[in-house]
Amino acid sequence: MNYLSVGDMALQFRLRQHNVSLKQEMSTLSKELMTGVHSDIGKALGGDMTALASINKQLRALQSYDTAVSEAATLTGSMQSSLEVIQALTGDVGVSLLSAATTTNSIIIDATAKDAAAKFQTLVATLNTNVAGRYIFSGAASDTRPLSSASDILLELQTLVASETTASGVMTAVDDWFAAAPGAGGFLDTAYAGSLTALGPVMTSDGETTDIPASAASPEIRQTLKGFALSTLISDGLFRSDLVEKASLARLSGETIVAAQTSLADLRADLGTSEALIEDAKARNTAETHSLELARLSMIGVDEFDTASALNALQTQLETLYTLTARMTDLSLVDYI
């Protein structure tokens, strides 16, 4: 019988080689156990990557939709909160102005108008809200502050009504200024710096978009601004010596603010519809992403039990190899003489 002997150096080399091989296999299996995915995906799929590429493409698209949906949810949520503040500002102001107008008491009218004037400043500041670097009521021009300051708007109106001698004349001039079309020198040209194009539509999923309707140029917002601006004119001294016209303008201001409350509620309802559509899209995208990730895992995932068993077996082999190597190292010719 023929025997093939292996020299000491060759044996040590083979032992080291086997040691490296076992460690590499253990590293691969450890990574697969932690990630749950085959280290060699091409081999796991038999070289056919078509289905996996399609799933990965869908997942990337859903990730971009998720980013857009998250941003839209933040914007609409901030808009809704701001509109809630604005609606709260209108609160009892309209009714208070109507009540003050019936008293024909200049002190009461002035005090009520002063309260409305203070809220006018808060109203303008709220419409200039900036969230994450974007002005939420500027329409598509979200990098631009939508409104001039309350004092600048008041200055425009003071110049506009300087020659008016009646409350109805003031009302007509202010109404025309807020309602003027672009290019006519009204509110949209001198006080509003945002875009007349709405923010959006936002692509929330494949083939589905959602509009974000509100801006400081919305008729509902302009009506609210107009009501408070009329009171601010009273507070600034318009018709100071004419109680009848002052009371009449307070009444017109109150009526405008009361009417604006209903308009604001309608605007908030429209915005709420957009919020609901965004939330629905977010839920659908999340469900679809989960489904695709499961499908992807079924294609390239590893069986955790089998992988753990293989890892244990390799560990046993490595320990055996270390034991054998130690014994080989301890061999001495003296032991056999």
Rank of each mutant, 00 (worst) to 15 (best):
71 E>W: 07
193 A>I: 08
203 M>W: 01
212 I>L: 15
202 V>W: 00
236 D>N: 15
47 G>F: 08
158 Q>K: 15
77 G>Y: 09
60 R>G: 11
119 K>F: 03
322 Y>E: 08
110 D>K: 07
231 S>L: 02
302 V>Y: 02
74 T>V: 13
169 G>S: 10
85 V>A: 09
202 V>L: 03
11 L>F: 13
316 T>C: 03
274 S>T: 06
101 A>E: 00
182 P>D: 08
195 S>F: 06
309 S>K: 10
49 M>G: 04
105 N>P: 03
334 V>F: 13
16 R>H: 12
199 L>Q: 05
166 T>D: 05
235 S>E: 10
29 L>I: 10
65 Y>I: 10
234 I>A: 01
192 Y>N: 05
21 S>Q: 15
188 L>V: 11
117 A>I: 08
195 S>G: 09
79 M>V: 05
285 N>A: 07
320 T>F: 05
195 S>V: 12
169 G>L: 09
32 E>D: 13
300 I>N: 04
317 Q>R: 13
49 M>C: 07
200 G>M: 09
40 D>Y: 12
302 V>T: 09
267 L>C: 07
195 S>K: 06
172 T>V: 14
56 N>F: 01
126 T>M: 04
291 S>P: 02
289 T>V: 07
32 E>C: 09
29 L>Y: 05
144 T>V: 15
121 Q>I: 12
134 R>L: 06
14 R>H: 11
153 I>F: 05
127 L>H: 02
157 L>G: 01
275 E>W: 02
140 A>R: 10
142 S>T: 05
305 F>T: 15
219 P>L: 08
140 A>N: 13
123 L>W: 06
63 Q>K: 15
320 T>C: 00
242 D>A: 12
194 G>L: 12
125 A>Q: 15
192 Y>A: 05
67 T>P: 00
102 T>D: 01
57 K>E: 09
133 G>Q: 06
2 N>L: 03
97 L>P: 00
22 L>Y: 07
297 L>A: 13
6 V>W: 03
327 R>L: 12
318 L>C: 03
224 T>A: 04
228 F>Q: 00
187 F>A: 02
337 I>E: 07
233 L>C: 08
55 I>M: 11
336 Y>I: 03
303 D>N: 15
283 A>G: 10
13 F>M: 14
111 A>H: 10
112 T>V: 14
265 A>S: 14
161 V>A: 01
62 L>N: 11
304 E>P: 02
24 Q>S: 13
229 A>T: 05
58 Q>I: 01
224 T>N: 04
302 V>M: 06
215 S>D: 10
67 T>D: 13
52 L>C: 06
41 I>K: 14
